[in-house]
């Protein structure tokens, strides 16, 4: 474990807790894409298949349970909670899951470190995580404005992956056998996807105005 990865995990944890707290507190999911949240629940499910077979550390297992629990709770709130679900804008949140799931699955079958079910699922989760934010970014562009909590949520998600990139660079130099080029490429693609959002987020923060994403 290094400081970059710990900071990345804490930022990631904070982002999902901020979102869960927002939905739980104000009983609203306005501006939140259910599609993205469902994709994240799928990312964690396919990535943590080894949660009960490979014990890494208490920290690792606890964090996996928190990410699984929080992502499924968020999906439950938006789908099932009698008050929250009323604020879900299903007419605007129309991104098709399978446009992302199927290409990631095909790619994982052909490009992976080892052709086993768990390894292909793990690789699939990496590719899917890189693009899972797209329905949320599309929704933000459609609804033009975003409330600052959603902006912070997306910002923290991007920041966590950027910290992970620093972690991979650090591990590349400190651990001789640490080679995970698939992780690195997926992680860089993911962070680049956030880059334009970062740009507009900083612009709005600097000019102290509501965040407007270009159509």
């Amino acid at each position: 474990m290094n400081i970059f990865r710990l900071a990345g995990d804490m930022t990631h944890l904070f982002s999902v807790l901020v979102l869960l707290l927002k939905i739980h507190t104000i009983k609203s999911c306005a501006g939140i894409s259910l599609k993205t949240q469902e994709l994240y629940a799928l990312v964690f499910t396919t990535r943590y298949l080894d949660i009960f077979t490979d014990f890494i550390s208490l920290y690792n297992t606890v964090m996996k349970l928190i990410f699984l629990g929080s992502s499924f709770s968020i999906v439950w709130y938006i789908r099932r909670h009698k008050i929250v679900r009323r604020s879900y804008d299903k007419d605007q949140d129309t991104f098709r899951h399978y446009f992302l799931v199927i290409p990631c699955l095909v790619l994982a079958v052909f490009i992976n470190h080892k052709f086993t079910f768990k390894e292909v699922m793990w690789t699939f989760s990496l590719y899917l995580e890189a693009v899972a934010i797209l329905p949320q970014l599309v929704l933000l562009q459609r609804t033009r404005n975003i409330d600052n909590l959603t902006g912070q949520y997306v910002f923290l998600l991007g920041a966590y992956r950027a910290l992970y990139i620093l972690n991979w660079i650090y591990r590349h130099f400190t651990e001789p056998h640490y080679v995970h080029w698939i992780t690195w490429i997926a992680g860089v693609v993911q962070t680049l996807l956030y880059a334009d959002f970062f740009y507009y987020y900083f612009q709005s923060w600097k000019n102290n105005e509501k965040l407007q994403l270009p159509a």
Partner: peptide
């Protein structure tokens, strides 16, 4: 190669 396929990251 020597790549450890143990995924120790979240």
């Amino acid at each position: 190669g020597g790549t450890t396929l143990k995924h120790d990251e979240l």
